[in-house]
Design a protein around this nucleic acid. Sequence first.
DNA 1: ATTCTTACA
DNA 2: TGTAAGTA
Length: 123
Amino acid sequence: MRIGELARLTGTTPRALRYYEEQGLLHPQRRPSGYREYAPDSQHTVRHIQLLLSAGLNTATIAEIVPCIPDETTVLAPTCQELLDLLAEERDRIDAQIAGLTGAKDVLERIMNTSARSGEQGV
DNA sequence: ATTCTTACA
DNA sequence: TGTAAGTA
């Protein structure tokens, strides 16, 4: 199938699919016309990419994960140990972000509580 | 009508 | 990521 159909089937845009390819996430064949030719199962690959993207992983990391997925039917069945290690790192990264955001939120709340008592000098 | 590449108010 | 331009 060509880029337009794959985009329609996966709810993305041709633009995004070309970007994925540029990032080494997809490797469609080329027709003599120069048009990209996608395998029918690339549809599942794109879904996996979108899932990982929504988890906040960057394209470089996703490029390492995608080849670890056996059949395109499975929903990210962690096969290789490599994949599990990468996911563990991402989990830690997210925990770190949560800690950072929680800290930022606390700062704002302290400022708000101070301002609430009008007149006092905040922070 | 679609896709391709390149480039950017 | 959208979009415009100029092709194939």
